[in-house]
Simulated assay, not measured.
Amino acid sequence: MRGRAGLLFDLRGALQIQAANAALVIVAGLSSVSWSGIPRGDRTAWSVVDWRPESARESWQAVVGFVPDAELTVLGTGAAFYVGNIPGGDAPPPDYLTASDDELRAGSPLWSSTVDLVAAMFTEQDLAGNG
C-alpha cells in the first residue's frame, strides 16, 4: 500500500479539542493500516479514548484506542491534522440505538461536509511534500 488515508472524527464531546466539532487526519505515504475491534450490534459508536501519534525520521504512526474495545494503527511518512466546524455539528448527537440513518448523518462530519477551518497542523514530512 502506498497512498493516503483519511480519518474523519466527530469531536462532539471531545475533552481535549473544544474549539471545533470535526477533525480530519490525512496520512501521507500510507504503508500500513491495522484494525482490531468487534462491533456491538447493528451500529457501534467508536469513541476515541487514546491517541498516540509518533513521528520518526521518515515515518509517522498513530495508534488510536476506542471504546468499546478496538484499536486502529496507521503508518505513513507524514500526516496533516485539520480541525474545523461543520454546520449543525454543535448539536448533541442523536441516540445511536434508535435514530434513523438520516438522523445520524445530520450534523455529523461527512466526506462531503462543508467546513470552516479552525486550525491545521503538519508533521515535518507533511502533505505539502511528495507524500
Rank of each mutant, 00 (worst) to 15 (best):
F122Y: 14
G41N: 11
R105W: 08
L117I: 15
D126S: 15
G41V: 09
E103S: 09
V48R: 03
G131P: 04
S32T: 14
R40E: 13
P53T: 01
D102I: 12
S55A: 14
R2C: 11
R105L: 15
V49C: 07
D95A: 11
M121K: 12
L30C: 02
A120S: 10
Y82L: 15
S47D: 08
A128Y: 07
P87A: 15
V48F: 01
E54W: 08
N21L: 03
S112F: 07
A45Y: 00
V74L: 04
W35P: 01
S36H: 12
L110D: 05
Q125R: 15
G89M: 01
M1I: 14
T77G: 12
L11F: 02
P39T: 07
L8S: 05
G13Q: 03
V67H: 02
D50I: 05
V64A: 01
V63I: 15
T114H: 09
W51C: 08
L97N: 10
A19M: 08
L104D: 09
F66R: 07
F9I: 11
V49W: 00
V25Y: 07
R57D: 09
W51G: 07
G88D: 10
G76K: 00
V63K: 15
L30Q: 03
P93Q: 09
E54R: 14
Y82E: 13
F122N: 13
D126R: 13
V49G: 07
